[in-house]
Design a protein around this nucleic acid. Structure first.
Length: 261
DNA sequence: GCATATGTTATGAA
DNA sequence: TTTCATAACATATG
């Protein structure tokens, strides 16, 4: 699931569930999601600490404490839940943080593609250095500059986390459809007007998606049609095309999004 | 068995 | 140096 919008939802879960609360107990059920830290050290570094205001950059969630920061990445199937410690554990609950008598934060992940890192401020900075500006915060000029110097397709530019942080496969298709740009257009070939439109529509898509904590599968959106057996464009009724662009399954409207010439 | 899945990264090639 | 496709990672589903 997790793109910027989903991770922003997890940030809200973390803030409302855990901010200001003391970590009484850390339980590791699957060490495969730990990176560069043992279960023993994770426990000893975090138990007794208090969660502070969490932050997000792109698809990274920064769980700040009064000690080290827990960096979380959710891969394709990860999530963060606020539970009661007495709730039955789900098969894919990998790490739990018990916060007092009636709260437990759970990192749940089926595929274990990513996971948790324990980081001091310098390590946090190193991780974020590799990331482009956050897609939900980037201004038009910076967005413009990043795309104008980018070679390759506009879709690969949007989804490259070192160019722009937070856009995944679903969001990229939705944004390009909204801006009426074919995903295989060369980023450098976009006119200034097209880049401006792309920035505006990206902000629109992100704002609506962040309200829903996901890319909403509404029937008025591309995402609401992409899994149909015979999908059509909600704007013009034309049959949608599907192919591989930038290495990912990509859906677009051949009428609204004219191919590169 | 095959292909697919909202993510990242190592690898080799263009 | 950048960008591309591909495979790999681990798991589920159609």
């Amino acid at each position: 699931m997790p793109e910027l919008t989903d991770v922003e939802g997890f940030r809200k879960v973390l803030a409302s569930c855990a901010r200001g609360r003391r970590i009484d107990q850390v339980e590791v059920y699957e060490t495969g999601v730990l990176h560069g830290v043992s279960a023993r050290r994770l426990r000893s570094e975090l138990e007794g600490r208090t969660f502070r205001e969490p932050e997000r950059h792109g698809k990274w969630l920064l769980a700040r404490t009064d000690g080290p920061t827990v960096l979380l990445h959710f891969g394709m199937t990860g999530g963060l839940l606020c539970c009661d410690p007495r709730d039955e554990r789900a098969p894919h609950d990998r790490i739990t943080f018990t916060l007092g008598r009636d709260r437990q934060l759970r990192y749940r992940d089926q595929r274990k593609l990513k996971g948790l890192w324990l980081a001091d401020d310098a390590a946090v900075a190193r991780t974020l250095e590799a990331q482009g500006p956050d897609a939900a915060a980037v201004g038009r000029d910076e967005f413009d500059a990043a795309l104008a110097r980018r070679r390759g397709t506009v879709k690969s530019g949007l989804t490259d986390q070192s160019v722009l942080a937070g856009i995944g496969n679903l969001l990229a298709d939705e944004i390009l459809w909204r801006a009426r740009l074919h995903p295989a257009r060369q980023a450098r070939d976009l006119t200034e007007g097209e880049r401006r439109r792309l920035h505006t529509d990206m902000r629109r898509v992100l704002r609506s998606s962040m309200k829903a904590d996901c890319v909403p599968p509404r029937r008025s959106w591309l995402t609401g049609h992409r899994d149909d057996a015979d999908p059509t464009c909600p704007r013009c009724g034309t049959g949608l095309h599907r192919d591989r662009v930038a290495g990912r399954g990509t859906v677009w409207c051949p009428n609204c999004q004219p191919p590169p010439s």
